[in-house]
Write a protein that binds this DNA or RNA. Sequence first.
DNA 1: TCTGGGGTCCTAGGACCC
DNA 2: TCTGGGGTCCTAGGACCC
Length: 356
Amino acid sequence: MTQQWVLHVDLDQFIAAVEVLRRPELAGLPVVVGGRGDPTERGVVATASYEARAFGVGSGMPLRIAARKCPDAVFLPVDHEAYNVASDEVMATLRGLEWGGVPVVVQVLGWDEAFVGAGEGHGDLGDPMEQAERIRAAVLDATALHCSVGVGDNKLRAKIATDFGKPRGVWRLTAENWFEVMGDRPTTALWGIGSKTGKKLAALGIDTVTQLAESDARILAAEIGPTMGPWYHRLGRGVDTSAVDASPWVPRAHGREETYQQDLEDWAQVAEEVRTLTRRVLADIDREGRPAARVGLKIRFKPFFTVSRSLTLPAPTNDPTTLADAAVSLLDRVEQDRPVRLLGVRLEMTPPPEGY
DNA sequence: TCTGGGGTCCTAGGACCC
DNA sequence: TCTGGGGTCCTAGGACCC
């Protein structure tokens, strides 16, 4: 059987790069994109250019902290539409590629990421590192955007490999060099293990990828769960049997969240904001053409504390009044004794019809 | 002057039914 | 004196990712 290869393509500092493309005078400057582009407001960094990262600015950081670390940075608002357009160009470029003489299979992961696999009935694939370089050249040629490519013998290894290739590079991670590269790294270096699970594993005496791989899967299942335990054990060994799947993504839910510049103290106003957010989510739901089956509410209080409430509707609907009333009714299940800092409304949609 | 906004998936526990 | 057992649905919350 021929070796199966998976490539993972990840655009370098995608959002910042798109902004620099349309404002060439920003090239080489520290650029921070986030919120409404005003670093005195509540909001966080979506992407920082490499020049800004050198000052310690990173994704997820509050804009105010970023401004403190890099006062001379250029702060820009998030422009979803521009990133959608650029992303579509990148993905179209990838879909137009061939590998082994047949069109590739592309699985989009987000604005700036995709897996690329060999198509059905492919011939001789040749060197995957050369294919990775062809991808980098094709994306740069079509969009003027740089990317990095991970080469792996499965999706998990390809995905992890990409970070080692950044920026503007290619890296290969397979069963052969898995433990050499990953073995001594912390479990949180794995895709799917964050800080909480890392701590849970550490409490079981598992700190490194090798230790996770050599752990007892039955103990993990008993301690962490029948699904997640064995899955983490597979992560430790770099095992992933899932296929690159090009089928179109069908959203399960849509939501809107808003962080208020001033905390909301008046609960009549909170109810009004819930109605406004519900209307905004409905615009997305209507585009999907499927009714909502569940309604959820997320509230972040000040100080930092989050509650969520949800309900299943008696019958799926996309009637604006019914959905807004349902969302507001969830407020009755919340203790209304503190100021609200963030509100979120989420509508879960009915499953797509068979054969979608 | 802390901590976005869009999602996905999993789990635990209670209600309810047969 | 002893309170089954299996299954599904619902809700709240946790964890993770980009």
